[in-house]
Amino acid sequence: MTEGELVSFNCRGCASADVVPVVNLGEQPCADLFPPAETSGPDPRWPLALWLCRACTLVQLGPVEAQIAEEPLAVESATSRAHAEASVKEILRDYPELLGGVVFEFGSPHGGSWLDHLSAAGSRLAGVGEQADLVIDVHGIVHEPQYGESLKLRADRLAPGGLLVMEFHHLLPLFVGNQFDTIRHGHWAYVSLRALRNLAAHHGLTVESVRQVEMYGGSLMVMLRHTEDAQPDPSVDVVLDDEDAAGIADEVQLGSLQEAAWHAAGALHAELIRHKVAGRTVLGYGAPSKAPVLLDLSKVTTDLLPFTVDLSPRKHGRRIPGGSMVPIRPIDELKAARPDVVLVLTWDIADEIVAQLEADGGWGATYLVPLPEPHERA
């Protein structure tokens, strides 16, 4: 990173120039670019680094704008669909005044839409420019390069007395769980509750309540209102205290994630070497957007992982980008190969994957989860 980049880069949340690099994962391939398996590369790479804004505490990607836009190829998981349905039921149970109200949703490439469930419950979709009683953003805003401007759009959509619900992968479990593979191009912000609270205040919003949910390895569902309507409950301070105890607004503490990432990557490489030396076959399950960083940092190639499989037919015949070159095949090929070890690359839905592969009794495979350190799933 050059001095010029440091000078020209302003915070994506509050526009402050007081941003500092804290984690550098080197040059990495684009997470959603899955080239045809027969292409030899090399694939395009860009710097992948986290920066901390000292003013608002938002953790974010650095000044890298040149990326290849790729249409999402993933299939929405059963876990995600079930979570959307359950979330709508919980929100309407806890906020019955929203029943039959006007709703607006900012969509996400990850899916997880609430709209069908809300419509079934009697909600009406907001018209063009209409403010809504319930505004939803479920893992959408992190795909917007300018977090602060995007948050303002959500505030502007919210009707007086309305509720804004934002769900996002939480920086705290990313940090304490060494989830370094969730750092990727296209996800511009890595959000703590403190950072969201700070930025929300710029747009007349206040955090009222917080729920911790398991999605994507640990997420927050945050309820916000216009400040004049908000009545914060104790759940807010609980999460803020947890964040403070972990030091995720401290640049030195955040910087320790870099060493932890390299350590875990080396441990995964060593674990796969150990299985190979012992004559055990290892194949992968999943081709998520987190796989390129994980496999690249771990120096895992087809010598250690001959192929992985994925539920999405649109990924079949393609490969993981970057140095791994691992091809992506249908799930039936994994079942036919009956490997000794299945490396679960979509580790955040490991329960769903194991249940799927063991539905007919399985074949006695061991399931290897790569993070926070490689370990066998109990």
Rank of each mutant, 00 (worst) to 15 (best):
H226Q: 13
T227Q: 15
T227N: 07
T227H: 13
T227G: 08
E228A: 12
D229A: 07
D229T: 05
A230S: 12
A230Y: 04
Q231L: 13
Q231F: 08
D233K: 10
D233E: 13
D233R: 11
P234F: 11
S235M: 08
V236P: 00
D237S: 08
V238R: 13
V238K: 12
V238D: 14
V239A: 03
V239Y: 05
V239I: 12
L240V: 09
L240T: 05
D241F: 04
D241Y: 05
D241Q: 15
D241L: 05
D242Y: 04
D242L: 09
E243Q: 09
D244Q: 13
A245W: 02
A245M: 07
A246I: 04
G247F: 00
I248Q: 02
A249G: 12
A249M: 09
A249D: 14
A249E: 10
A249I: 05
A249W: 04
D250C: 02
D250S: 03
D250Q: 01
E251H: 06
V252N: 06
V252W: 08
V252S: 08
L254I: 06
G255A: 04
G255F: 00
S256D: 03
S256H: 08
S256T: 13
Q258H: 08
Q258C: 11
Q258K: 07
Q258Y: 01
E259W: 03
A260L: 03
A260R: 13
A260Y: 00
A261C: 11
A261F: 09
A261E: 09
A261S: 14
A261D: 10
W262A: 03
W262D: 07
W262M: 07
W262S: 04
H263P: 01
H263E: 14
H263K: 14
H263D: 15
H263S: 14
H263V: 12
A264T: 15
A264S: 15
A264V: 15
A265D: 05
A265T: 08
A265Q: 01
G266Q: 11
G266A: 08
A267Y: 01
L268W: 05
L268N: 02
L268E: 06
L268D: 04
H269T: 04
H269D: 08
H269R: 14
E271G: 02
L272N: 07
R274N: 13
R274A: 15
H275L: 15
H275A: 11
H275S: 12
K276C: 12
K276I: 03
K276V: 03
K276L: 13
V277G: 07
V277N: 08
V277W: 06
A278I: 14
A278C: 15
G279K: 03
R280Q: 11
T281Q: 08
T281K: 07
T281R: 06
V282L: 06
V282G: 01
L283E: 07
G284N: 03
G284H: 01
G284F: 01
